[in-house]
Design a protein around this nucleic acid. Sequence first.
DNA 1: TTAGAACTGTCCAAAAATGAAACGATGTGG
DNA 2: CCACATCGTTTCATTTTTGGACAGTTCTAA
Lengths: 283, 283
Amino acid sequence: MKNWDDLRIFRAMAKARSIRAAAADLKTTHATVSRRIRALEDDLGSALFERGKEGYVLTAFGQSMMDLTQSVTAGVEAIDRLAFGQDGNLAGPVRLSVLEDLYHKVLADPLDSFMRDHPMIELAIETTSNFRDVHRREADVIVRITSDPPEQAVGRKVADSPLAAYCGRDYFRNRPAVDRWIALDYPPAITPQLNARSAFVANSLTVVADALRRGQGIGLLPCFMAEGDPDLVRLPEVELISDKEIWTLTHVDILHNPRVRLLMDHLYRAFADQRGRIEGRAD
Amino acid sequence: MKNWDDLRIFRAMAKARSIRAAAADLKTTHATVSRRIRALEDDLGSALFERGKEGYVLTAFGQSMMDLTQSVTAGVEAIDRLAFGQDGNLAGPVRLSVLEDLYHKVLADPLDSFMRDHPMIELAIETTSNFRDVHRREADVIVRITSDPPEQAVGRKVADSPLAAYCGRDYFRNRPAVDRWIALDYPPAITPQLNARSAFVANSLTVVADALRRGQGIGLLPCFMAEGDPDLVRLPEVELISDKEIWTLTHVDILHNPRVRLLMDHLYRAFADQRGRIEGRAD
DNA sequence: TTAGAACTGTCCAAAAATGAAACGATGTGG
DNA sequence: CCACATCGTTTCATTTTTGGACAGTTCTAA
């Protein structure tokens, strides 16, 4: 193979299934991707993609190629982790992936102070609704809300994240005989035994919380979302519902990077400080 | 990692331990290698080599890197084999690796006719004294003289390669009471029971054969080297000595490439035709 | 049917990588 | 001690690659 770097382009292309999308992934232009793919096909002597009207689709050969690039990619990722873990510098980048809502409710202030304490660290916060994979080095540190214990990663469980039932303050004062139920479409969908009829469903914690604050009805939220919110009242007759756990994770290869270390420790403290509220125990 | 291709340069560099030697391997210039290595180190953030007076030596980090590049290299090699095996074209390249002496004595004529029969195949013959590894795709087809059965490769044993004792014609006519012994420094060093004293040692079959032809003494040679040579006489009192085997090998991934197929078949026929001579059985 | 969006391929100027040569440092043999 | 060879780095002109713009196509929705 003339140029190993073409495998990087090939993989992006096979995943994105379009030249433009792959180019965006690779932070380059579609012209370049088009040329590199063509060059790779010339080099290998066979077509990797079928140029149909459906866009680019892997040929059988391309599919086999894709399988074989797995070990290449795994190797490169291991190298990236090694290099990052080897980096003993305090100055430099570190990337954190965290759920948007958890960032706003729990981590915004601690991370603000983290950046003040360590101005030479370039913290990149990526808030997502999905979860990133620490193994692929898409992020260095991940705060994950999960029900499964983590597989490949290292780190700690920093809190439980139980659910409780909440409603707006005004709603609580004039509570109807039959409650309006704001359902959180959240796996697994949990419904406590209440005298209520469903009013609406949302898959976003923010949307549910907002509806509750507006007095739309009652609904479940993770405690970290609602505890301490002046506009929300917890229904005393509903017990805490055990749900997921919050883990702070990284990869063993980069655990000794001082920036990762510092960030992990800071996150541990931040969660320890707020654990009562997150777990719905203290006020 | 910004550019996966730098791993290719890194590996060549780590093996060659000198910028110029790596550049020769990579068929580029030392200036480029120097720059690419520096770029890779910048990208990874750590030094890969120690620039001592001894030349370039891997740092501990570089050593770890080298280990991790194994899976990358294995993947790329598998891809190369896949692409080559996939190639159904009759026109194109195929590379054969064969021991220099075996080429001259056994394969020169058959390969000449092979190229005449298939002018669209670009046959690259690489004669070496060492052995190439078919697994690494340094060659597509290998004719190997070995005592171990092959591990990863596929192919056939095409002949035994026993040793016999020879001398020059003139020497045979006026044979001294105590023979002069031309030793072949060939693992394992074999010495038959003869009334002889050692005259000289060479590690090259060609040199031993030449010495024998000049009447320097008697010595062992593989039959393929000596049988049919008008200037050499086989000593009738010395039995054939079983030694190594001759195998024609390729990799399973590229076995179905038509050029490989054709070449393999041609080699099988060539060895079948000359098997008697090679094994010292017929005249 | 047409307007518009999304896509790929191609052209050309700009940017980046490369090879050749010059340079300085180091080691070697006479 | 000097002449000479070897090696890695740097410089500069050249080649190659890239990014942006334009053109042509297909698909969708009005």
